[in-house]
Amino acid sequence: MTTELSVVAPPAPAVRHAEPRLPVPYRVIARWPETPDTVTLRLDPVAEALADFVPGQFAMVHCFGRGEIPVSVSSIPTTGGLAHTVRGVGAVSEGLCAARVGDVLGLRGPYGTGWELERALGQDVVVVAGGIGLAPLRPLIRDAVAEPRRHGRVNVLIGARTPDDLLSKYETRRWATAYTGVTVDRPADGWSGEVGLVTRLLDRARFDPPRSWAFVCGPEPMIRATARDLVHRGVSGDRVRVSLERNMRCATATCGHCQLGPVLLCRDGPVVGWDRAEPWLSVREL
């Protein structure tokens, strides 16, 4: 998988974790606020490590005494460990956002499907991120720009509510892409960038639709609007990869919560092809 593209395998830990429902202690070795309500935590295993993650996969992250939530991996450093980007919207996620450097959390995973950037070999790449949806896409973008010769033109389109809600602002500018667009719904004083919905940036991106792969993550209506737009422009539906979200409890395909029609998103997702996802997302309350 993408491991070969991006990750120099970290020194193999002595013990690989075997019990899928039991969290493994990981220490917060760095923490940086991304936005007023979103924090990225850089985590290293205290002793034993989880198996390697690929971009798009997620972990169940445990906050002591509060519970656990699914969080996509937002960075897979070549030096080992991983990073998660968490937005504080509930008891567990707020607890995770409040974690300090040195604190120890519980992690289990990796779970689910990856973006599978390697399938886009030699093709144009269009990454479309809405809000915190940039976090799961970040390791994919890093892989894509790290090995420019593997792909055609790489485009990164980022939408957010306000300039304050943009993730990875400094890194975004440094990505060597054919086109990087950033747009906000509500500009603030001093914002000189684009204003408008992220799909409007598709007009500016440089890609040849029949020879392109797209990777989309964000709120579900944004995913639907973006995927339809891409398909309308001529990108094949199975090459529009989207990351979906449903309630998730076990992440091991045994609790039934993350069903979306015929799939269990923890096992068959979160990343699925738009050709398969579209019929499920078009039924209300499925």
Binding site: V54, T113, C250, P262, V263, R267
Partner: peptide, 15 residues
């Protein structure tokens, strides 16, 4: 495998 290249092919049985 529902997806051609499912990453998590390991079954996760309820122990």
């Amino acid at each position: 495998a529902l997806d051609s290249a499912r990453a998590g092919a390991t079954p996760f049985p309820d122990r």
